[in-house]
Design a protein around this nucleic acid. Structure first.
Lengths: 361, 361
DNA sequence: TTGTACGCGTTATCAT
DNA sequence: ATGATAACGCGTACAA
C-alpha cells in the first residue's frame, strides 16, 4: 500500500534515519546523499504517514469543529473561516454536526477524545456551563458562547447587546408594543434579556404575552410563533427576533394575515445571513462577521493548542445594526436625521432594493 | 497525557494484551478478569488511541469530503447527509473547501494522501477527467460528477436532463426566445447541452447571443449576465439557469430593468435550494435531493472502502421540476391540463405563496 | 555525516 | 485463559 521511509531508504541506499532527516530538514547531511534521498522520495512519491508521525509527536494536526447543523445558514461561513486558517497552518478540520442535540454533542466530545484531535472548537453549543467546563478538563477547547466555562478560551457574541440594539432601534422609530421571538436553547435567553433591557430602559412594561419562545429557530417555527403572537396581541406593531430565519417566518405569517411589512408590522432579525438581503422586503438585522468569527475562532484555537497550560483568553464580537426595508426606518420622518447622527460606518449599495445602511453602535 | 492500555493493565493487574482483548471483545477471557479490566477502564476513563489503532490496522476510520465551498447553499445539505451516515458507521469527516480552485483541489489530494484517510469524496470537482483518474489511482474515490473517470465510483447528477426539462417546460409554456446562463466550470457545459437539446428537439435555432457564461455561479454574476443577455437580445422572454443563485440574479436584474417576472421574463433555476421558495417571486427550479445525495455518496464511499480492488459502481440522481411562480405556468391557460397530465408526484403546500408542484419527468 | 536502537499505543501471532 | 513479543511508520537520543 503506502510507500514508507524504509522503501525510500532502500532505494537511496541510506538508513531510514537519514531519510527522516531529509524530510524534516534537520541535522547535517551531505548534499550528495540529500539529493539521492530527495530523488528517491520523488521517484516513489513518498509521503510521510501523518498517523505514525502523530503517534510519536503526540500532535495530530487535526482539530474538530462542533456545530449544531451546517444547514443553518449561520454556520457555513464560520466553517469556511475556520477551515481557511486551519489549512494555512497545516491543520485538518473534522466537521461535527450535533443536530441541535446536547446528547450528540456530548457523544462527539467522547468520540473526539479517542480521535486524538489537538483541539475542539464549539460554536453554538447546547451544553450548559457545567458540561462545558467538564469538557474543557478533557480537551483543549475554544468556544463561541455567552456562558463562562472555566478552562476554555471563549469568544462571546454579544447577543444581549444585539437585541438591545435591534429593539432600541424600533423604539426610536416610535413603536410602543414590540413583540419578541426567542429560543429556549443556547444563547436564546441572553438575547431575550437584551430585548427586555431595551424596553425597561425606555420605561416600557414587560409583557409575557408579547414574547414567544421556540425550540428551534427556523422559518417554520418563526411563522408559527408569529401567528400565535399576533393572534393574542393584535396591537403589536413590531417584532424583534433571535435570528433571521425566525424573522422571515414572521414576514411570511404577516403575508398570510394580510399585515403589511413594515407599515403594519416592523421586523428585525439577527445574523444578517445572505437570505436577509434577498427576501422581500429586505430584512433589517444585526450583522455578524461570520467568516471573520471563524477565522478568530481557529486562531484562538491555535493559541490554546500552543499554550502548555490552560488558556483562558476571552474575546468579544459585536453585532452591528443593518438597516434595510423590514423595519420601516426608511419611510420614517426622522430617517434622514438618524442617518446623519449615527456614526455611519459603511453603506453597502447594490442593485435596486438591495441597499443597506450599517450603523456602528 | 492520555491514559493508555498499559495504565489499565497495571491497574487491573493483567497484561496489555488482555486489556486489548476485553476492549475488542475477542478471545476467551474469564469473567473475573474481564470485570476487573472493565472496572479499571471505567475508573481511569480509558479511551483507545485511534491513531495507534489505525497505524496497526491500516484504516483510519476517517474520510474526506472535498467541495468547492461550503457557503454555496448547495453543499451544506450534502455535507450533512454525508456526515450523518459517516457518524453512524464510526467514521469522521474531514471537510475540505477548495475555493473553486483546481490547484487547491489537487493540493488537498496531496495532503490527504499523507493523512491516511480511508477514502475521499469529491462533490463539485473542478478537475478534468484525466486528473480525476490520476487521483483515483492514489486514493479510494467516490465522486459526484458527470465525467467518467476510471477507477472511481461515481454518482452522476443528470444535469443535461435537468436543463433539458427546465427548458422544455418553458417551451411548453409557449416561449420561443429562451436565453440561458451557464458556467464554464465543472458540470456547466453539460447543463448547457441540455438547454440546447431542448431547443433543437423543438426545432428552434441555437443562438450564441442568447447564451451567457459565468465563471462562478452567484447572485452577483447572475445579475450581471442577465443584464448583458437582456441588453443585447431584448426579445428574450425566458431564461434557464445553471443554478438558483444565477436565477435569483436574473430576478434582480429584471427588477432593475423594469421587467416583470414572470409576465415579461420567465425564469427557471436549478438545485431547489431553500432560498428558491423564500424569494419573491418564488422560483421554479429543478429539485435535487441533496441530503439524500450526501447519504448516497457516503454509502457509496463505504462500499468503495470495503472492496479490495477497484470499485466502479455508477449511480444516477435525477432532478425534478418544481413549479412555483417565476416561470408563469400558473397563469398559463394550459396549466390545469399540464397539472392533470403530468404524473404529479407530490404537492408541497405551505403558507401563502410558498406552495409548489413537483413533477416527475 | 550517518547508522542503531528504542519508544509512541495498539493489534495480532505465537507460546504457555 | 493469559502473557510475551513482534510489528505498524516515524522521530530522536546516542553511538559510530
Amino acid at each position: 500500500m503506502g510507500v514508507t521511509m524504509r522503501d525510500v531508504a532502500q532505494q537511496a541506499g541510506v538508513s531510514i534515519n537519514t531519510v527522516s532527516r531529509v524530510v524534516n530538514g534537520y541535522g547535517e547531511i551531505s548534499d550528495a546523499t540529500r539529493l539521492r534521498v530527495l530523488a528517491a522520495i520523488e521517484d516513489l512519491d513518498f509521503r510521510p504517514n501523518v498517523l505514525a508521525r502523530s503517534l510519536v509527536s503526540g500532535k495530530s494536526l487535526s482539530v474538530a469543529l462542533v456545530i449544531p447543523e451546517i444547514t443553518d445558514p449561520f454556520f457555513p461561513e464560520v466553517t469556511l473561516g475556520v477551515e481557511s486558517i486551519a489549512r494555512s497552518r497545516g491543520y485538518s478540520v473534522l466537521l461535527c454536526n450535533t443536530n441541535d442535540s446536547p446528547q450528540q454533542e456530548l457523544e462527539y466530545m467522547d468520540i473526539l477524545a479517542g480521535k486524538q484531535v489537538d483541539g475542539i472548537m464549539i460554536c453554538g453549543s447546547r451544553l450548559n456551563e457545567e458540561q462545558l467546563t467538564a469538557s474543557a478538563s478533557r480537551h483543549r477547547l475554544a468556544v463561541v458562547t455567552s456562558r463562562k466555562p472555566s478552562g476554555a478560551a471563549v469568544i462571546s457574541l454579544r447577543g444581549e447587546l444585539g437585541l438591545f440594539q435591534s429593539t432600541s432601534h424600533l423604539l426610536r422609530l416610535g413603536h410602543r408594543i414590540i413583540g419578541h421571538i426567542g429560543t429556549s436553547i443556547g444563547s436564546g435567553a441572553e438575547r431575550t434579556d437584551g430585548y427586555r433591557r431595551a424596553l425597561l430602559e425606555h420605561n416600557m412594561p414587560l409583557d409575557a404575552e408579547r414574547e414567544a419562545v421556540v425550540a428551534r429557530a427556523t422559518v417554520e417555527t418563526g411563522r408559527i410563533a408569529a401567528r400565535t403572537l399576533l393572534g393574542r396581541r393584535s396591537d403589536i406593531t413590531a417584532v424583534t427576533c433571535f435570528n433571521d430565519l425566525l424573522a422571515i417566518g414572521v414576514v411570511q405569517a404577516c403575508a398570510g394575515l394580510g399585515r403589511r411589512i413594515p407599515d403594519d408590522v416592523a421586523v428585525v432579525g439577527f445574523d444578517d445571513i445572505d437570505l436577509a438581503s434577498l427576501v422581500t422586503p429586505t430584512l433589517t438585522t444585526m450583522h455578524i462577521p461570520r467568516f471573520h468569527l471563524g477565522e478568530m475562532l481557529m486562531e484562538l484555537m491555535l493559541r490554546v493548542i500552543g499554550d502548555k497550560g490552560v488558556h483562558e483568553e476571552h474575546l468579544y464580537v459585536d453585532p452591528e445594526l443593518v438597516v434595510r426595508e423590514s423595519c420601516g426606518a426608511r419611510g420614517h420622518p426622522d430617517w434622514p436625521t438618524m442617518q446623519a447622527t449615527a456614526e455611519k460606518k459603511e453603506v453597502v449599495t447594490s442593485e435596486g432594493s438591495a441597499s443597506s445602511t450599517v450603523f456602528v453602535p
